[in-house]
Amino acid sequence: MTPTVVLPVIIGGLYAAGVYLLLDRSLTRVLLGFLLLGNATNLLLLSSGGAAGSAPILGYGDPEEMSDPLPQALILTAIVITFGIAAFVLALIYRSWRLVRQEVVGVDEEDRRVARRSGMDADEIDPDDLAPEDRPAMHADTLAADDDAERGLARHYSGIASDDVDLPTPRSNP
């Protein structure tokens, strides 16, 4: 039996698509990317056992013609782990949606605050602060909707302070 080229091609394609989705800011896409990467890795494990053969262990065929059972056992374990974690991530996404009506990866406020102190680095390359045409593809809509929501809130609560008001500037070091 000779190895097939189909598996490597599928594995490569799944990895490429998975990485692409994983780089998105939308959490559902990230989850889908993770699932694709998980399946690609499972296929990689499967192909590591060599060419396919008859059912192992049961003794239906000559030991030389049997498939290697170990990668299959590893894959079963990996599938269970991937499944459980995917369910957990789904629950997290749902929770995130309930809390902030967003399912994108949030910004780290503390990081921004530290970055603002120097006023010269990270903030300037943050996609939120770029002009819409400079933003990475696929993000303009999400962020625009977010900005609209922010402006609506600002109008609504213009009378009172809001929680993302700038914190007082820290004292400079003595």
Binding site: F34, I85, V89, L92, S96, V100, V105, G106, D108
Partner: peptide, 13 residues
Amino acid sequence: SAPRIRAGITYII
């Protein structure tokens, strides 16, 4: 809570 979900998602991914 919202901050923990935000931090948790980064960590998990």
